[in-house]
Design a protein around this nucleic acid. Structure first.
Lengths: 282, 282
DNA sequence: TATTGGATGTAAATAAATTACAGATAAAAT
DNA sequence: ATTTTATCTGTAATTTATTTACATCCAATA
C-alpha cells in the first residue's frame, strides 16, 4: 500500500539503474512528487523509460500514477523511512523520528489486528468471573495500565508484578477466570509458566503477544501484537504502545458490550476521582 | 492546505462551469485523482481549460499539481473525522476509531512538542544524581514504564506507587536529584504536594503535564503533554500514550547524550535479560 | 440597446509520458 | 575463453495529456 515502504522493501531487488531512481526518490520524496519524469530521470542520471519501468515495478500504472501514490504516502505523517535514531541527530531529529516511528507502527498494527480475535476476547472478558493481568519488565506497566482501566468497570480484576504473587494468582484461578498475559516476544519463561499454571486450573488464558511464540502456544486465545520493534536502542518502545492500544480496544469493547447502565457507573468512578483534584478555575 | 476543504469553502465563489467541476470532484474525489483532465471535463460537462482554470483558482499550479494535492488530502482526510466511539459501532468500527484517534493525537502532539524544553530536560537528566518518577492512577503505569527504561541505563532511579513512599522519597531528595511528575490534568493534589516537597528540598522538578495547571506552577520545567483527551468513555487513553512517547524521547536523548560507550552497557543489559527467555528457533 | 467585462469553449501548441526497438551488458553455458 | 542468452538500458518515435492563445458568448450595466 505505502509506496515509500514498497520502495525501501524492494531496494535490493532492483537493477542498477532502477536503484538509482529509488535512491533519488528516497533522498527527497517531497521534491519527487513535483518533478516531471524528465526531471527525475536527469536527477537520477538515467533515461526516462527507466523511471517509467521503475514505477511499474512498484505496482503503479505509470509515472503519474506513481506520483499520486507517493503523494498519498507522504501525506500520512511523512517519511516512514530512515526513522532510526542516529548518533548525530539533533533534538528535533530524534523527537520527530520517535513520534513517526510510533505512528507508523501503530498504523501497521491497525492493519494487522484481527478483529475477530478481539471480539472473542471481549466475549470472554465480559463473562469472566475474575480478570488478571500479568506482564514482566516493560510489559508489567502495560498490565498495570490494564488494571487501572478495568478496575473502573467495577469487575473483579487484579495484577501483580511479583513473580511469586503471579504464580499464586494463577494457581488460585478456576474455571470462569480469565488470565491475560502480556509479552512482546512471547519468550519470557516465567510468563509461559504462568500460562501453563492457569490452564491447568481451567482458567481461560489470553495472550497479548507474538503469534508462533512459546507463550502463544499455551494460550487459549492470542491477540497478535506483532510490531517490528526497532531494536537499535535496545529498548522496548513501540511494541509497548501497540499493547496499550490493544488494551484500549478491549476496554472499549468491554464497555460497549456491557451497555449504557454500565457506563453510568464509569462516570461515577470518574466523579469519585474528582475529589482528589484541584478544580479547574473556569 | 487541504484541497477538499479549500473546494467546499470557496464553493459559492465559483462560476457556473467551475462549480460543475467542483461538484464532480466532491461527488467522487477518489475517482477524480485517477482521471485525466479530459475525463474530468467530460464528467463535469465542461471544457478542459475550464478544469484547468478551476485548478489554478484552488491555488495549485495546474491540473497535475491539483491531483497531487487532492491525493494528499484524501490520504489523511478521513481519520480526523468522526472518531468518537458510538453505541452501535461494530468491532471493526471501534477498533479502527481507537487506532486512528491515537495516531491523530500523536500527530498533533508531535507538532506541539517543544524540543527546546525536551533538550533542557535531557540536560537535567544526564546530570542528575538520582531520578525519581511518580504518577498516580493511569499515570502510575507511565512512571513505572519510565523506571523500566531508565533502569537499563544503570543510573540511580526509583519509582513508587504508594503516596507515602512517594512523599518520603521527595522529602529525602536533595540538590542534584531530579523528580519527574506525571499527570495528564496536572490537578492531582498529591502530585502537587510532591512537587512542593521536592522543591523545598532543592530537587529539580520536571512535570510531564498540562501547562497552566497547578502542578505545572510548582515545576522547574514543564514538558507539555497537552493532548485533547476524548472523554467520551471516561478513560484516559490517548493522553497516556502521549506521555509514554515523551518518556521514549527523553530516554533516547539521554542515551544519545551519554555516547557510545554507554550504549554498549545497554546491550549488556539486554543480553542479561536473554537468559530468562526461550530462544528463537531460527 | 449598446457596451463592457468576465466566462467559456475551440483549436493550436507545448509538454509529458509511453512504446517500440536496438544496442549494451552481464550471466550462463559450451 | 568464447559464444549464447537473457536481461537491462537508452534513443527515437509515438501517443497522450496539458496548457496557451484567441474567439465567441453571455450577463450585467449604462
Amino acid at each position: 500500500m505505502n509506496v515509500l515502504e514498497q520502495i525501501s522493501l524492494n531496494l535490493n531487488k532492483l537493477s542498477r539503474s532502477e536503484r538509482k531512481v529509488a535512491d533519488a526518490i528516497l533522498l527527497s520524496p517531497k521534491s519527487a512528487i513535483h518533478s516531471s519524469i524528465a526531471t527525475l530521470a536527469k536527477l537520477a542520471d538515467v533515461s526516462e523509460p527507466t523511471v517509467n519501468r521503475f514505477c511499474r515495478r512498484m505496482d503503479t500504472k505509470g509515472f503519474p500514477d506513481f506520483k499520486l501514490h507517493l503523494a498519498q504516502s507522504l501525506a500520512n505523517g511523512t517519511p516512514y523511512l530512515n526513522r532510526h535514531v542516529e548518533e548525530s541527530d539533533s533534538v528535533d531529529d530524534y523527537t520527530t523520528k520517535i513520534y513517526e516511528a510510533t505512528m507508523a507502527s501503530l498504523d501497521r498494527s491497525r492493519q494487522m489486528v484481527d478483529t475477530v480475535t478481539i471480539n472473542k476476547a471481549v466475549d470472554i472478558l465480559t463473562q469472566a468471573k475474575k480478570i488478571s493481568f500479568f506482564g514482566q519488565g516493560a510489559s508489567a506497566s502495560v498490565a498495570q495500565d490494564a488494571l487501572n482501566k478495568f478496575f473502573r468497570f467495577n469487575v473483579p480484576v487484579q495484577s501483580f508484578e511479583d513473580t511469586l504473587m503471579q504464580r499464586m494468582a494463577c494457581i488460585n484461578s478456576t474455571d470462569g477466570d480469565v488470565v491475560i498475559l502480556i509479552s512482546h516476544t512471547g519468550r519470557t519463561k516465567t510468563l509461559v509458566d504462568l500460562a501453563m499454571l492457569a490452564k491447568e486450573n481451567d482458567a481461560t488464558v489470553i495472550g497479548i503477544t507474538a503469534t508462533d511464540s512459546p507463550l502463544a502456544e499455551e494460550c487459549n486465545l492470542v491477540i497478535s501484537s506483532e510490531i517490528p520493534e526497532d531494536t537499535d536502542l535496545y529498548m522496548p518502545m513501540v511494541s509497548r504502545i501497540g499493547q496499550l492500544v490493544i488494551v484500549d480496544v478491549l476496554a472499549t469493547g468491554f464497555t460497549l458490550r456491557r451497555g449504557t447502565k454500565f457506563r453510568d457507573n464509569l462516570q461515577k468512578v470518574k466523579q469519585g476521582i474528582k475529589e482528589s483534584r484541584y478544580n479547574k478555575l473556569i
